[in-house]
Amino acid sequence: MIGKIFPKSAGSFKNRIRYIFGCTKHDHEISGIRTISFNTMSRDPLPGVLQGNESDLSEMIREFDQVETLRRFAIDSEKAIKPVFHAMMSLRPGESLTTPQWRQAVTKYMTDLGFDESNQYVAVMHQDKDHQHVHIVANRIRLDDTFSMVKDSNERSISLESVSGIEDGFNLSKAPKPKDTWGVSISHAELQASIRDNDLPLKHKMIAKIAGAIEATNQAQGDMFTFTRLLRKQKVYINLTLNEDGQPKGISFEFDGKHISGRQLKRSRLTWHKLITQEGINYDPETISELQDEIARRDSEEQERARIYYYEFIAVSGRRRKPIYIKFTARDYEVQKMIKEILELIDAIFDALFKPQECRLKRKYIEYVPGQQLNISDELELAI
């Protein structure tokens, strides 16, 4: 079973409640909808919805929305709140629970997260072929004299533990915990884009590269310097956010010109704290200056990769010939051998029609750095 908590929201419950009762477009097929449980005064709206009548649904939405108005009058507070809670519990394909079992699972899950009988909620099951999942929409405002809010601190770790208990209670397959896997959910929009572009979403490519660098660093018993260099080889660069003491408190990753924080990528494994405590990437606070220098090496290496050289060869004969240019980068370590073999090939085919302009030890070269003017010189000597 997988438990997922969606981002909370302010305002009306209308969109969430209409969604779970199948009144709005879904990104998956729905072969069946079943109301699991609810605690509102209004009736179960599903029978009416299935007949095209949303009057009971509107009444349930109105009941949910009234609580925030009552709270505002009762405590006279202008503080912005997000009362709309939406979660989902999803079984693996082939597994199923009966309605009473789902009701028990929902009760345990909500109780573990701090909700009680004073919090309005409604739970609806969607059947997608052989895949069952239940949506829960709840009001975080308690309908009592206090109108207090259900706290959401550590709710994701609590959710994981609650789901694990439900799995044990109903003998369901155990889902791997986030710290044990690099799996990251993909939205419907990301999935469609990846199909259209025939490529993985950027976020998933970044995680794959970072995960490989972590594993390689651990195998080499390396440290944060090793990790930085391994990432750089894959054109992934890191940026650190420092605290008042000049020590890292956050980390972000850059790939293909896009920046994503470790927390956004996978906060259970890729924050600065998780990297050095959970993932085993060693870091000595005394080396922060040297580490910053290592991170900054990216700029010089990128510039060197962009530098391009051209060899220029001019035909020596009675007729004027256009120059021949051979391009190579600064990192083509075999370039001299390559040029020599090309010259030998030209000599063999054209009977020495083409010759170097001055001698074999001196070549005119043109150096081009993107964004700068061409630099032409006759002074470079290259032994061939």
Rank of each mutant, 00 (worst) to 15 (best):
I346P: 08
I251Q: 07
R319C: 14
S42T: 15
E301A: 03
Y310H: 11
D332V: 02
E254V: 06
I5V: 13
I308L: 11
D128T: 14
I314N: 11
I288V: 15
Q303N: 08
H126F: 13
N171T: 06
T228K: 00
E68H: 10
I339P: 00
I207K: 06
F313Y: 15
F21W: 01
A220F: 03
F64K: 08
I186K: 12
R103V: 05
M1L: 12
A208P: 00
F115D: 01
Q372F: 12
F350W: 12
N282S: 14
E290H: 07
I136A: 08
H259S: 02
E334M: 06
S58E: 15
S148F: 08
T107E: 12
L345M: 13
I260S: 08
K209W: 07
F13Y: 14
N218A: 10
K151A: 07
H131L: 07
S317T: 14
D299M: 00
F115I: 05
D351T: 10
I186R: 14
G94V: 08
A87W: 09
E95A: 13
G3C: 07
Y368R: 08
N243C: 08
L70N: 15
D27W: 01
L97T: 05
F147V: 10
R140F: 03
N282A: 15
L240F: 13
N154F: 14
Q192Y: 02
I186E: 11
Y121V: 05
K82W: 02
V369N: 14
Y237D: 08
G169Q: 14
Y311S: 10
R331T: 12
L97A: 10
A189L: 09
P7W: 01
